[in-house]
Design a protein around this nucleic acid. Structure first.
Lengths: 223, 223
DNA sequence: GTCGATTGGATTGGATACATTCGCACCGCA
DNA sequence: TGCGGTGCGAATGTATCCAATCCAATCGAC
């Protein structure tokens, strides 16, 4: 069906074939992270498969993938449910970020990759524009921190950061945090300081600033 | 079949039921990590399923789980192969550990969980006994560092540490490292120092010692 | 003789079918 | 009225089946 009539295509492009499993995985992941499928939701396979227009086989494989990511949980003979992530998990996620991101910033400063630094600056710019709006602001903040992790050039750290920045659990807490007196206002400035340190190759400063930044903004329970 | 005639059981024990998928997953994981299935091996579903005495469906689900863990890779219509992890990955893993473990040690020192500290001391003891033997020594070393991560009480950090300590890529490099002049000898002492710092609640010392310890032992390419 | 097309077997990807288990409602009985 | 047992419907877990794709060897043309 695919990849057959394209021998004359310009070039490389490892032809991004997506199997049905991949599509189902992406769709479910999106619906979970966006909150469309709230935590605790029982994922009945028959109806889900029907809804997505596929059979249960690829659906189950996608659910297995999501289960190793921790987004859904399997109970034997009782099926899959959307994981119950709560405030406690968010505290853990934040705590893990405090452990992770300073080290990532240090690596980034030693690496000084131009593209990565540009990506971080873009994220800062977006954050300034998004000031105020809760959802956009969260997305911009998340983008910055993911770009920071990616700038380390370490695939493990990048992957871990993505795991910790799960929007579904982050958004409500972040919104509560942004509503605090000295909320989201100065964050972009702090981010900018981190980028500058990285761009100048000052590893110690990058690490310190990141640690202070993350440590200074623990999650706040949504009211 | 299970869970039916046990109302008089003493207590909780969430009765560890393992589905066929779980068994297959564990078996494959073990065979991959132990090197029984070398990297690059094509995992033909029919023969594997036959060998394990199951059908292809649960086997495929187990392979999907392994793929999100990065241990196997899927190519569309070409099936699954054991991932090609090499020395570069090991350097990345080590680098990520440098970023991770000091923070974990800090958390552990703030927590001072008695059981966790005991587990770390056990690991140190095992390591002293295993001195010399390559495989056992690696296992003991791994146990210590995993115990350290677990002592942080942070599930994310624990999980990440497990991902980074993949024996298959670690063993050959570790052996090369242990063969170095001042190799595995003093490690147990350094570990002990870390445990003492954690047990006494000295977060700064725990973090610093861990950073120095991990940083001081970068991976060495196997000869 | 070498390169390209073709065809057949082997293998994967997905759909369907079947057995087992679970949850809930109904019923009987104290 | 409250509690435990029973049976049925629904949903899961696994096996089997079919179509689409890939790989390799053979065959043919230049």
């Amino acid at each position: 069906m695919y990849a057959k009539t394209m021998s004359a295509q310009p070039a490389i492009a490892p032809l991004q074939i997506q199997s049905v499993v991949d599509h189902v995985y992406s769709a479910l992941r999106e619906r979970i992270l966006s909150g469309d499928l709230p935590r605790g939701t029982k994922l009945r396979q028959a109806s889900l498969a029907d809804e997505l227009g596929v059979s249960r086989t690829p659906l189950r494989e996608a659910l297995r993938r999501l289960s190793t990511e921790g987004l859904v949980e399997f109970s034997p003979n009782r099926g899959a449910t959307v994981s119950e992530l709560d405030f406690g998990d968010m505290r853990h996620a934040w705590s893990a970020r405090v452990a992770l991101e300073p080290g990532a910033a240090r690596l980034a400063a030693q690496r000084r990759d131009a593209d990565a630094i540009a990506a971080m600056r873009d994220a800062v710019k977006l954050q300034r524009q998004a000031a105020g709006d809760g959802m956009d602001s969260f997305a911009a903040n998340r983008s910055f921190h993911l770009a920071l992790a990616a700038a380390s050039g370490n695939p493990h750290l990048t992957r871990f950061a993505e795991m910790l920045w799960v929007p579904r659990i982050g958004v409500p807490i972040y919104q509560a945090q942004a509503a605090e007196p000295r909320g989201a206002a100065g964050w972009a400035d702090e981010h900018e300081g981190i980028v500058d340190a990285i761009a100048s190759g000052d590893a110690d400063a990058a690490e310190r600033l990141t640690r202070e930044h993350v440590s200074a903004h623990p999650p706040v329970a949504p009211s």
